[in-house]
Design a protein around this nucleic acid. Structure first.
Lengths: 195, 195
DNA sequence: CGGCTTGCTGAGCAACGCTCAACAAGCTAC
DNA sequence: GTAGCTTGTTGAGCGTTGCTCAGCAAGCCG
């Protein structure tokens, strides 16, 4: 008590890019335990060891912040799913599907949290994932050699919803083998678009 | 300014049941324009013509309130979908599917808002709809003459996700006729469980 | 009219999103 | 080395919103 106030932190100063990345990273780490929109600025700032005010220096408001966090999560998924350049089209969908199941197996909780946050209430958050889903549909339709029209988009998007739900519950309680799951999903897709 | 304060409301006093029902009703009316969790107590109280405090007399906290609103919405859907007693099993699923599409056609925006709120972040809200979905699966499996085991539940629940997504986007942009949509959904379900 | 139940309110606290004026770390110029 | 600029950073503080609590008053009974 009688000692000098002693600055607990040597007042580290980061570059703008570093700090921004750090804040988004903290958001990503908090995602599994907290719905995005319920992240509190206080908590994030505390973890980063900065004042609340600084967060508003990098993000105009709370929404812009958690939208950035959501976008970061979507980008991670996107990069993991994208086929390596040069992959033959007929293998692309199979590969993406396989990697998607792997992703859910590895990051089950955080992925579930991400999807829930993206599906739920806030339009600004939903839009981020919608956009990623849209790009995934484009890739899938191209790989399948199908036209990118409204009808095929609807069908493949609905199949995404089917896949997300089934893979999620399967990861929680495996009622079939992994290859069976993959075959089932692929089969449903093929029959759907073969009309 | 110089007039008497004049009590704007004659201080109407309602029974507990009436007031509760009124508050839930207001929540239902606000659902299409506002994600459930973002309903503000202020707004609801203002619309009901009561003080904020009174709302906390009926609902312990905000969550309990919007959970009640969500449950009311889920009950409305449930009552609309349930087959009339005495309906032969083979017609039950077809009828429920038909009524579901009708429901989405009629209440597109509010139903979308409801599903989004139920899917999104808050576990307490999700649980309400999860429970209704669970009961719907039971009815469907019974009508189809299938065992109510984990695997069938997973498949039918995933098919629900497929159906919700497809019917939602179809209502926005009809890419096929209504009978075609119903036939497609029914066909996907039949093939899924016929394994 | 006195007394009881209970629907109802207003003042007020704490948490949180957000603003703003000012401080200070680290670089460049002289 | 120091003057001066840029910009990362902070603290005080405001408005809104969820929530509490002591107490008022509407309607009923004796």
């Amino acid at each position: 008590m009688t000692g000098s106030p002693s600055p607990p932190h040597p007042r580290l100063r980061r570059t703008a890019g570093d700090r921004r990345a750090q804040l988004v990273q903290i958001g990503l780490e908090l995602l599994p335990t907290t719905p995005v929109q319920e992240l509190t600025i206080d908590e994030v700032a505390r973890r980063a060891g900065i004042s609340r005010s600084l967060l508003f220096h990098y993000f105009a408001n709370k929404r812009e912040y958690y939208t950035a966090v959501t976008r970061a999560a979507a980008d991670l998924l996107w990069e993991h799913l994208m086929p390596a350049p040069g992959t033959p089209p007929e293998e692309q969908v199979t590969g993406m599907l396989d990697r998607y199941v792997g992703w859910v197996e590895t990051f089950r909780e955080s992925h579930l949290a991400f999807v829930r946050g993206a599906a739920g209430g806030d339009p600004w958050v939903s839009e981020v994932y919608e956009e990623t889903r849209g790009r995934l549909v484009e890739v899938a339709l191209a790989a399948l050699g199908l036209p990118d029209d409204a009808r095929h988009r609807q069908l493949v998007l609905a199949w995404f919803a089917f896949t997300e739900d089934l893979v999620g519950s399967w990861a929680d309680e495996p009622t079939m083998t992994r290859p069976e799951l993959l075959a089932l999903l692929r089969d449903v897709l093929d029959r759907l678009v073969a009309r």
